[in-house]
């Protein structure tokens, strides 16, 4: 790996994103807007809103970076630029790291805006550290990048790539306890949730929100980081120098 290539790739990805003003605006505006909508929907159920608000702040980057990564990787594959890059002196990890750096940066901006709205305007309270919420959100964004990179290899069109969000991410978010807390779900579903990565990401955020920063939080973070490493390794194997 070389820092030069990673930095060049991150810069190129950000340059591409900068051209797409509308997407940038959506990335920054949609999460706080959704959160505000939820705040008013749950106006009579403030505790329910409090319970999911912080986890949502930290899960938006995961979903959005997953989508953006799948689609940009798919474009990279179908436009022939990936084939070109694979014929150049570029390590696969440079490409992945370049994407990760660029999208982590975007996720950090997004989370700061969402957090400012959530904590400043919508009255969401965090008993733990608000900085930790941002850090977890950026980690989740990296998880989204890693999963998107890996899963994009199984999509042959942008249409398919987009479908992976409701197919792969949405069930995990529902199992995380978005509507019903984890411990009130049927036992079988809790076992399923324990075997999937996103509930750990969700749980970590919920714990920071309630100020419960004990060992269970460490486990949550360890699972998320472990999943990132595994997904990056799997994603790297899908970047083939030689293709059929």
């Amino acid at each position: 790996m070389t820092v030069r290539v990673t930095r060049a790739t991150a810069r190129r990805v950000l340059e591409q994103l900068r051209r797409d003003r509308r997407s940038l605006a959506l990335i920054v505006i949609v999460p706080p807007a959704l959160l505000a909508l939820l705040r008013f929907i749950l106006d009579a159920e403030r505790p329910a809103f409090q319970r999911v608000a912080v986890p949502l702040v930290g899960m938006f980057p995961l979903i959005i970076m997953f989508l953006i990564t799948s689609i940009t990787m798919l474009r990279e594959r179908t436009s022939g630029t990936l084939e070109r890059l694979m014929s150049l002196p570029l390590a696969k990890l440079d490409l992945i790291a370049g994407y990760a750096v660029a999208f982590a940066f975007v996720a950090a901006v997004q989370t700061c805006v969402t957090s400012a709205v959530a904590f400043g305007l919508l009255g969401v309270t965090v008993h733990g550290s608000a900085a930790l919420v941002v850090a977890l959100a950026v980690t989740n964004a990296l998880l989204g990048v890693a999963l998107g990179l890996f899963l994009s290899a199984f999509a042959t069109s942008e249409f398919q790539a987009v479908q992976f969000m409701p197919a792969v991410l949405l069930p995990q978010i529902l199992l995380s306890g978005l509507f019903v807390p984890h411990d009130r779900m049927p036992h079988a579903l809790r076992i399923v949730a324990d075997a999937l990565p996103l509930p750990y990401a969700f749980d970590a955020l919920a714990r920071v929100a309630t100020g419960d920063e004990g060992t269970r939080l460490h486990l949550d973070v360890a699972v998320v980081l472990g999943t990132i490493l595994v997904a990056v390794a799997l994603g790297a194997t899908t970047l083939r120098r030689r293709t059929p």
Binding site: A8, R12, Q16, R19, S79, G80, L90
Partner: peptide, 22 residues
């Protein structure tokens, strides 16, 4: 490659600078 493999959403110079940095 037979089909041009450059980034459509970058300028010519931005494309070249990226590959040149690589």
């Amino acid at each position: 490659t037979q089909a041009p493999s450059v980034y459509g959403d970058l300028t010519v110079v931005e494309n070249l600078r990226y590959f040149a940095r690589v």
